[in-house]
Simulated assay, not measured.
Amino acid sequence: MTQTGTIHGVGLGPGDPDLMSVRAHRLLSGAKHVAFFRKAGRKGQARQIVEGLLPEGVIEFPMEYPVTTEIPLSDPRYNEILSQFYEDVTQHLIRLAQAGDDVVVLCEGDPFFYGSFMHIYERVRKVVPVNVVPAITGMSGAWTATGAPITWGDDVLTVLTGTLPQDTLTDYISRTDSLVVMKIGTNFEKVIAALKSADRYEDAWIVQYATMPKQTVTKLSEMTDDVTPYFSIIVVHGQGRRP
């Protein structure tokens, strides 16, 4: 009887390959199958991170999102389309594992932190063996890039997504000590408005492409770009108790 393979959700860290864990590198070096998410027509950020690190002859399985920003999150079709997409790609991965092959699924940042791999994990964990390799998060790379600690003493850190309603964003921002806002993109103006309403706008920094070659670190109030890249994170540092 063929031994079932394992699906490995491998965190690659914030973007710089040098920040990848030894365990992640070891799995990549011996991979037979590598799967990764990407937008149609793009190479995929996770795939770019491991460029030159995969063994010769590796079988790649690009998982192309059928929808990203074309349909609003509030549209019922959004979840329906993505749910079917995750089901389809998961079944392919399960078939590979049941045939006895291990599969490495590339994950930007940490697999269990706002990552698409979570949707695969929930569908495979009771069917075939699954292993998750944690990693440095994108937000850790972002606040490190600012050159200042994100939390001091008893500071409370809040992590928000820009997809939340503006009133909700404002409420959380006004009550926290330090802050990270992710998933900015098309929500940029809404996030700006919430920061201003909470009187934290002047304290905010925006980091684009943290730890990557195109990294930029800018005081949010001094930003002049019209377009906010997908890989952008807003940071507000805590100012808590210090010895």
Rank of each mutant, 00 (worst) to 15 (best):
T2E: 04
T4I: 12
H8C: 04
L12I: 07
L12D: 07
G13Y: 00
P14Y: 05
P14S: 11
P17G: 08
P17V: 03
R23D: 04
R23Q: 10
A24Y: 01
R26A: 14
L28C: 04
A31D: 00
V34C: 06
A35L: 04
A35H: 01
F36K: 09
F36V: 09
F37H: 08
F37Q: 11
R38H: 05
R38D: 05
K39M: 12
A40T: 14
G41I: 05
R42H: 13
R42F: 08
Q45E: 11
A46P: 03
A46W: 01
R47F: 14
E51S: 11
L54F: 09
P55K: 03
V58R: 09
I59K: 10
E60N: 05
F61W: 05
P62W: 03
P66H: 07
T68S: 11
E70L: 12
I71R: 07
S74T: 14
D75H: 08
P76W: 06
R77D: 05
N79K: 13
N79I: 09
L82P: 02
Y86A: 12
E87T: 13
E87Q: 15
V89Q: 02
T90D: 14
I94E: 01
R95H: 12
R95P: 04
Q98R: 15
G100S: 13
D101F: 15
V104S: 08
V105C: 04
V105A: 02
D110H: 02
P111C: 07
Y114A: 14
S116Y: 06
M118V: 13
H119F: 14
I120R: 04
Y121L: 13
E122W: 02
P129E: 01
N131W: 02
N131G: 03
V133E: 05
A142F: 01
T146L: 03
T146R: 02
A148G: 11
P149V: 00
I150Q: 09
T151N: 12
W152V: 11
D154K: 15
D155E: 10
V156S: 14
T158W: 02
T158L: 03
V159L: 03
L160G: 06
L160Q: 03
L160A: 05
T161A: 03
G162W: 01
T163Q: 10
L164M: 15
P165S: 05
T168M: 10
T168Y: 14
L169D: 04
T170G: 04
T170M: 07
I173R: 01
S174Y: 00
R175C: 00
R175W: 00
R175I: 00
D177A: 12
S178D: 12
V180K: 01
M182P: 06
I184G: 01
G185H: 13
G185N: 14
E189C: 09
K190Y: 10
I192L: 14
A194P: 00
A198Q: 02
Y201R: 10
I206N: 06
V207T: 00
Q208E: 15
P213E: 07
P213L: 07
M223I: 08
T224M: 07
T224F: 09
P229C: 04
Y230C: 07
I234R: 05
V236Q: 06
G238H: 05
G238F: 08
G240P: 13
R242S: 15
